[in-house]
């Protein structure tokens, strides 16, 4: 197993995947006790990270426009009108 990456840097998908791997490993009960506790702690961190990512669900709808000088700007887009 490669050196674990900092949980905060993981994408949601990677974090979730790793969490599932840890869960499966713990469920088989074959891991070493020491490893299991480390894995559990990491699992808890991963779960928190996943939740944070899931909580961060803000909607923002913008329209991109580029002026003649190639400067990029965005403005809110109202799709309902």
């Amino acid at each position: 197993m490669s050196a674990p990456q900092s949980v905060e840097k993981l994408s949601f998908e990677d974090a979730l995947q790793e969490l599932e791997t840890i869960v499966r490993k713990l469920e088989t009960g074959e891991a070493l006790l020491e490893d299991s506790i480390t894995a559990y702690e990491r699992g808890v961190k991963l779960k928190k990270h996943c939740e944070t990512k899931l909580r961060d669900a803000q909607e923002k709808i913008e329209k991109i426009s580029i002026d003649q000088n190639g400067k990029i700007s965005t403005q809110p887009l109202d799709t309902e009108s």
């Binding site: 949601f12 979730l16 969490l19 599932e20 840890i22 869960v23 713990l26 469920e27 009960g29 891991a31 006790l33 299991s36 506790i37 559990y40 699992g43 808890v44 779960k47 996943c50 939740e51 899931l54």
Partner: peptide, 21 residues
Amino acid sequence: NLMAQVAEDEQRLISGLSRML
């Protein structure tokens, strides 16, 4: 779905460890 999945994983994580212990 993902929130449910994460919650389920958490449950499995806890019960997995306690069962192992």
